[in-house]
Design a protein around this nucleic acid. Structure first.
Lengths: 130, 130
DNA sequence: TGTTGCCTTGACACCGGCGGCAAGGTCTAC
DNA sequence: GTAGACCTTGCCGCCGGTGTCAAGGCAACA
């Protein structure tokens, strides 16, 4: 399978696949003319990468999952390094959820104050219109 | 007040103040020698900018708040455009909280599956150690 | 043999909020 | 007059995941 076919089947671009390669995530063989040649397993790898990216992982975080797949496991999740990343990411998400909850609270308060202010001004204006 | 003093008092850098200026958020006069000159009100403006940035706003979102302050209001929140931005941001934060909640759920499931897998493998290994 | 369509590497562009450096002007103090 | 502490504009770099273009090689079919 050449790069164009893999890109089409994985729903991404050749540019993206080459980028993953420079970051050590995808490892094609080379044919005699220098073309990248991928086997079927790489399709699975690319799907794993795309799925984790969609969740918010970056390429460095994804590396252990790919290594896990490549080590022959049916899922990229089950190796110790992957589990460590999952734990860390879960903690990050929890922390971010906390922070975002605070932001939400602050926004609601700002909004409430602003609207209160505008209502009060409206009432004053009615009593003494300009 | 020159740019260095404002930067120090606002807890930021001269580079940052010049950057805000290129984006139309801060408006210094110029002295005869070309130096930027800020009055006290600009300190308030810069504080508003920093506070909103810290919450996660970008500079474009912040513009109405600065305009509101500059229009003489004691708070940047109370003008219609600011309120509109607050509403939009609140909606964005809500949406992101939803999404992040989903991500968190997925991470927990992946983690649970991975750990279950490892425990099962561990039990098999005890029965038939390699 | 030419056209078409794939492939290769390399490099620039983007987004946002700056950091940091260079080359030069200005003001103050000694 | 000179040191040094300010100021000016302008430009490159960063991060991450691509899009996009250029210039060229290779394969297959008319």
């Amino acid at each position: 399978m050449l790069i164009g076919e893999l890109a089409a089947r994985a729903g991404t671009s050749t540019r993206t696949l080459r980028y993953y390669e420079t970051h050590g995530l995808v490892r094609p063989r080379r044919s005699a003319n220098g073309y990248r040649v991928y086997d079927e397993a790489e399709l699975r790898v690319v799907h794993e990468i795309r799925a984790l990216l969609a969740v918010g992982f970056d390429l460095a975080d994804i590396r252990p999952f790919v290594a896990c797949l490549r080590a022959g496991h049916s899922s990229g999740d089950v190796c110790p390094d992957s589990v460590a990343v999952l734990r860390r990411k879960l903690a990050e998400v929890d922390a971010y959820l906390d922070r975002l909850g605070g932001v939400r609270q602050q926004l609601r308060e700002q909004l409430a104050r602003a609207i209160t202010y505008r209502e009060e001004r409206c009432l004053r204006t009615r009593r003494r219109p300009d």
